[in-house]
Simulated assay, not measured.
Amino acid sequence: MAFLTLKIDADTDRGTREGVPNLVRMLTKYQARATFLFSLGPDHTGWALKQVFRPGFFKKVSRTSVVEHYGLKTLMYGVLLPAPDIGKTCATYMQAVQAAGFECGIHTWDHRVWQDHVRQKDSAWTQATMQRSYDRFNSIFGVAPKTHGAAGWQMNPYAFKQLEAFNIAYSSDGRAMLTESGALADPLAGPHRLSVQGSTLTCIQLPTTLPTLDELLGRTIDGIELNPTNIAAHLLKLTATPRDHVFTLHAELEGQKLAPIFEQLLQGWRTQGYDLVAMEDYYQYVKNQVLPTLPLSWAELPGRSGDMIMQGEV
């Protein structure tokens, strides 16, 4: 049986309050496991407006209806409205996920700041920011975090070294390269270790191996424009041949307006014979395998603007 690991990023206050409980109910209905990764500090989603100068930003916004999915209020946080502290305002929602039996981990402190700036930051800033996330997670859940998944698939060498200091055994901070259709460009892509600044890290990386819904919606692939009525079928076509995958979804999307699509995917993956698991389950399966060690690399993916951490060719 092949594993399909479900990794859920909760980026915003609204996503944590509304999307996360919806996803818990849906996953429980289908007896699927998953890992929830939480943003633990301020919600500065409104600062995303600074991305208007990034190539491809307007194209992505027009395809994915950002206002519709995130809500106007969320897009004003940090601009016209004060940024709520998600770890304080949504702690009970996070604790409910833990109580329901799902794995919880760290996404970031401030999603917007991390995604936009971490690549240029120094060791002191990186360590201090990650320590705030670590301490906040501990205060909310009463245990140390076991896993991590970088916001926007953005890290720097100091951040990877900090995961080692935190004894994070497995993380999902990067992507596997995809073709225009969303298929894997390298059939050997998957779990690996990173070589950073001359050192091989012990933390096992579990890269996302499938395109996200917001990367596919509105794009024309093989002459077909992908929309809410056919996008699940397209993704299921990508997983028709069984192999291990990691799929990243968002509490703001699949937990809300795109929930019907995610339910189709859960049904389809069950039919295809996948074991729907959390990151901790997949880690237990691969931890004793001989995994490749690869250098830290960056690249763009179809449907998403800007470079992100990309698994090198195995």
Rank of each mutant, 00 (worst) to 15 (best):
M177Q: 12
L206A: 04
A189Q: 09
E225L: 03
D214A: 02
S195P: 00
G190F: 06
Y170S: 07
G190I: 09
L163M: 12
Q154G: 00
G190T: 11
S139D: 15
D214Q: 02
S133G: 15
V196I: 15
L188W: 00
P211Y: 02
L249E: 05
R243N: 08
G152A: 07
Q162M: 14
F137R: 12
S195W: 01
L249C: 13
D135G: 05
L213Q: 12
T202C: 03
F160A: 05
H234D: 13
A165V: 10
D173I: 03
N167L: 10
G218V: 04
Q162N: 10
R175I: 02
W153T: 10
G149H: 01
F141K: 12
K237V: 00
N138F: 03
K161A: 10
R193T: 02
D135A: 15
A183W: 02
H245V: 10
T209S: 15
E180C: 00
A233Q: 15
A189C: 11
P207Q: 03
A150F: 02
T208F: 00
V246Y: 02
A176E: 05
A233V: 03
D244N: 14
L238D: 12
D186A: 07
S195D: 11
L249N: 10
S199T: 15
E225T: 14
C203L: 06
A185G: 00
L217E: 08
L184S: 06
A151T: 13
A176N: 03
